[in-house]
Design a protein around this nucleic acid. Structure first.
Lengths: 206, 206
DNA sequence: AAATTAAATGTACACTTGTACACAGTTAAC
DNA sequence: GTTAACTGTGTACAAGTGTACATTTAATTT
């Protein structure tokens, strides 16, 4: 890459990190201004436009960051043991670790899924859908629920993703309260187990 | 009530409705200004302060509105038939009707749960917790899951609430697409059934 | 009927916001 | 080596923001 493009990529990621940091510091992405982001990134406000048309376009790039983060999460979770109870325990631990190590991205995700612009909402929805499809893939390969067809597996995977995403808001808020956070993780674990039990029993209503 | 207090209550609810309408028109509550709200309510900006200290305080009052809306939802859902499959179907239909008839409140709820100020997040969390406790109450009275103790019932009720709340974001977005909305409702229904099946099978891990 | 109280108005001010535009400094292309 | 292209700077401005404060209007109290 040429020197110029390298430098550009550098300030570009400075902008992305600036936005994420402002979000993590308690700001709502929807309320963050171009000027704040530029200031945090150490550039002049108008330079922002060399990289993004507006904050919405930057937001869509944050979703890309989220995307690779989720892929990484799936990859980590796959290095695990066989037993189903262990599987849930281990996956949730990995999930929790990712929440902590990529706080900003998950705060952005939970905010954006319901409070972002329509395009950001859709982008996040799409990423969570891809995430669910990855889980379906694992279910199929491991024969987790032999009685379910792929549409039914997707339904269960969506439920898992929904439960994880919902818990993320709580867990991110409980970061400074280890006791309550452990309780919330235990709740999440029990709920996932309920879902697994239900999926194993699932049959269409008569 | 005296005329003066009546009028005050009137403009107060005008402010509340103005905020809700702005939210429903696609705005994010976090980005709405005092001036916008006052304009929408048909009063001068500074009159806002006669009723609320700031938008956050108004938001907490929106949570109160949400609270009574959820209570009403529970009450409606209780007038229903016995069979468990019917119960899920009927409850989800009622839920959907409430989403449509109180759109603004549920948009506010989904936005606020993850994107609101800390105090608003907590207030909404609290309302959803109360909602889950109501469900626990129903589970107990109807002996839905005789093998579960009350803590376990609460865990299941939280999962139901989480699933409903998560689906709300999707359903609110699909209001103008009946086909996809019906699909999403069917997904929600299947997921609730998975949860019920799992809860019936639930036992602590060995 | 007069005095008091309180809600809503109108004005004002210091900020912040997005963004247009001219410019400077560097890298890339020729 | 000169020219062209592009990233980042600096200035500028109209529009929107929260909110203090004095004023008007109308209901309540006396």
């Amino acid at each position: 890459m040429s020197i110029r493009k390298e430098k550009k990529a550098l300030t570009r990621s400075a902008l992305i990190n600036a936005a994420l940091q402002l979000v993590e510091e308690g700001g709502n992405f929807a309320t963050i201004s171009i000027r704040e982001i530029a200031k945090q990134a150490g550039i002049v406000p108008t330079a922002f436009y060399r990289h993004f048309k507006d904050t919405n376009e930057l937001g869509l790039n944050l979703v890309d960051e989220l995307s690779s983060c989720l892929r990484q999460l799936i990859r980590s979770a796959r290095e695990q043991s066989e037993n189903s109870t262990q599987l849930i325990n281990h996956s949730i631990r990995i999930f929790d670790e990712h929440l902590s190590s990529h706080r900003e991205l998950f705060v952005f995700m939970t905010q954006g899924r319901s409070g972002g612009t329509p395009s950001i909402r859709n982008a996040i929805r799409n990423e969570l859908n891809v995430f669910a499809l990855e889980i379906v893939n694992d279910f199929s390969q491991q024969q987790s629920f032999p009685t379910l067809n792929s549409a039914q597996l997707k339904m269960v995977a969506d439920l898992i993703v929904s439960t994880l995403a919902y818990s993320a808001t709580d867990l991110l808020d409980l970061n400074d309260n280890p006791v309550l956070k452990t309780e919330r993780l235990a709740l999440l674990e029990a709920q996932c187990r309920v879902i697994f039990l239900g999926a194993a029993e699932w049959k269409a209503p008569q």
